[in-house]
Write a protein that binds this DNA or RNA. Sequence first.
DNA 1: CCACTGGTTGAGAACGACTCTCAGTATCAC
DNA 2: GTGATACTGAGAGTCGTTCTCAACCAGTGG
Lengths: 144, 144
Amino acid sequence: MLEVLRAADDHPTAAEVYERVRRSSPRIGSATVYRTLALLVSTGRALELNLGDGAAARYDANTRRHDHAVCDGCGRAVDIDHPVPDGMMAEIARRSGFAITGYDLQFRGLCPDCQANGSDPARAAGGTGPTVNTHAKGALHAEA
Amino acid sequence: MLEVLRAADDHPTAAEVYERVRRSSPRIGSATVYRTLALLVSTGRALELNLGDGAAARYDANTRRHDHAVCDGCGRAVDIDHPVPDGMMAEIARRSGFAITGYDLQFRGLCPDCQANGSDPARAAGGTGPTVNTHAKGALHAEA
DNA sequence: CCACTGGTTGAGAACGACTCTCAGTATCAC
DNA sequence: GTGATACTGAGAGTCGTTCTCAACCAGTGG
């Protein structure tokens, strides 16, 4: 199961992981996939991502701290490695009174493929992309 | 409905909005609440938030661009107004190739109340907080 | 070899959040 | 009043996820 996750360069949902694992172990059940995924996350061997489109959680075998850029066109998510400056964290902790332990940053926009395919492609570059319309929710926090 | 949202200084879920609206309009149905909420979001009069704990979406009548700090203890979310520097956006756009239209930033940690009530309070300060255990998912991306 | 124990599994039911469908109702112009 | 149109509430349906439970398995002791 970890192998499946490591082999995936996209960020598969639990359902996608289930489907891929089933190719090698056809008798596996979805409960086992969810259980194992939760175990991997709790032992720090995988990361669970909520990419804010209200759709299913996604999983990532890259456990280093990193953020994501999510395409409003095809739903694809790519890794971003560009930490928020410590000074900003400290400033926010000071202003809010919170003891900040971590953060979660996602950028929204159009991936290079969707930019090339027009400004509002109908998930042209997809493949494993979700089927929900992420535009309504994708507008969340966006200020073009 | 907008009034209910504006009167709320927390970030109510759709179910909480439904419950509050029902006090003044007892015959309203949940479908109408979801429809109206979606309308408010699409016309830019409210913001929909996915606070990454896998729970229900939350709504916010504060439509200015802002971020949130979410308490791992009680689930409370407070507004943060501290934009990511433009230079960082440009750098990420350049490196990823994305046309970035917006972003979504959440900090995780313990709110002042939960810090005062011990390091792992059983949602002591709650009230309208969600009932799910956000710790498993709260660990998402956190590096204490 | 067999019985027992404890952990893991798969199937399917259950759950919560959300969306869809559809009949009923209100509103409007005529 | 009549018909067209839009909106509403109730409830069923969908989707992602979790729970339940019987079946299975490995290990242990006899």
